[in-house]
């Protein structure tokens, strides 16, 4: 069990999301920075898909109610456990009654807290992720509030500290041309790949709205509603692109100029409003290679820490 003392801007229970239900209008959800959650889980000996907390900025305070292990990954916070510094990217032992405090965030936007055994809220429709829009899953289907007490899974036997170097955030976001890429003007195609795109404050778990030169579509016909996924870059009539993320609706009707590759979606999760992003064209083969490298990085940690 752990108790929320200060919930911060938006702290939610997240795992790797719901799958297989998109045809019912049920979105994916789950951690926006999936590699960070996977690593936090590995650090404390959990299965990768165990539920942890996604913490947006701070300040956040919570109390552990049993001995165990914790790991913080993702955004780099000033974190302390009963006043002693906690290193992001490392696991460390915690004792019942200790208070974890997250204050200033140096880099990034979202931190992931994993505890050994995972956050053991019940699975709803196959996942523990919180669906904020529909109000189910996670803890009571909502962001956490002061006084919430979250169940924690069975303790995992671990020894000593272990850590992993976090991936380096850079503003380059690799993307593939989308199905309607050819319907945009040459100037729009050029602007997509060459101009900086700034993250607007209207960015959230559903999608990141970017600001830059208006992207002009030369085709006029309206598109019929189609399935969309995290990573799809939609362009509404105003010409300002939206990158869909984990909480996006399952269907859309705007032209898709590009799709951000899966291996780079975490960079959006860690980009703050005002940050400038650059789209870099890539190929399907490179996209798959990048994803394989990302998983390899996680596996390499397991080999070094657990020998398997």
């Amino acid at each position: 069990m752990l108790e929320i003392l200060r919930p911060g801007v938006q702290t939610t229970v997240q795992d790797l999301g719901r799958h297989g239900l998109r045809h019912l209008g049920i979105g994916q959800g789950g951690a926006l920075d999936m590699p960070a959650l996977r690593m936090a889980n590995r650090l404390v000996g959990n299965p990768e898909g165990a539920a942890g907390l996604e913490i947006v900025l701070g300040p956040v305070q919570l109390r552990f109610l049993r001995d165990g292990w914790l790991a913080l990954t993702g955004a780099d916070f000033d974190a302390t456990l009963d006043g002693a510094p906690v290193w992001c990217g490392w696991r460390q032992a915690m004792r019942a009654g200790q208070v974890l405090q997250l204050r200033g965030c140096h880099h990034g936007m979202r931190a992931y807290l994993a505890v050994d055994g995972g956050i053991a809220v019940p699975e709803v429709l196959g996942a523990r992720a919180t669906d904020l829009a529909a109000g189910f899953g996670g803890f009571a289907g909502r962001a956490l509030q002061a006084g919430d007490r979250l169940p924690q899974g069975a303790a995992v036997a671990l020894e000593g500290r272990a850590g992993s170097r976090p991936p380096q955030w850079t503003p380059e976001i690799r993307a593939l041309p989308g199905p309607e890429y050819d319907e945009f003007s040459a100037a729009a195609q050029d602007a997509l790949w060459t101009r900086p795109w700034s993250v607007t404050p209207q960015s959230n778990r559903m999608g990141y709205r970017l600001a830059g030169p208006a992207l002009e579509r030369t085709a006029r016909h309206e598109l019929l509603s189609h399935g969309v996924l995290p990573g799809v870059v939609q362009v509404p009539p105003g010409g300002q692109p939206i990158v869909l993320l984990a909480d996006a609706q399952t269907s859309g009707g705007y032209p898709r100029i590009a799709t951000v590759i899966e291996a780079d979606l975490w960079k959006l999760a860690q980009a703050r409003p005002g940050a400038e992003l650059h789209f870099v064209p890539t190929t399907l083969a490179e996209a798959r290679h990048a994803l394989r490298q990302q998983r390899y990085h996680l596996n390499r940690f397991n080999w070094s820490a657990y020998g398997h």
Partner: peptide
């Protein structure tokens, strides 16, 4: 296939990109 999603006049199927290039 992780998802099979009908739209209007279209169908989107989702798969594991590590297992298949599509």
């Amino acid at each position: 296939l992780t998802d099979v999603v009908p739209g209007m006049n279209n169908l989107t199927v989702v798969f594991d990109p590590l297992a298949s290039d599509g």
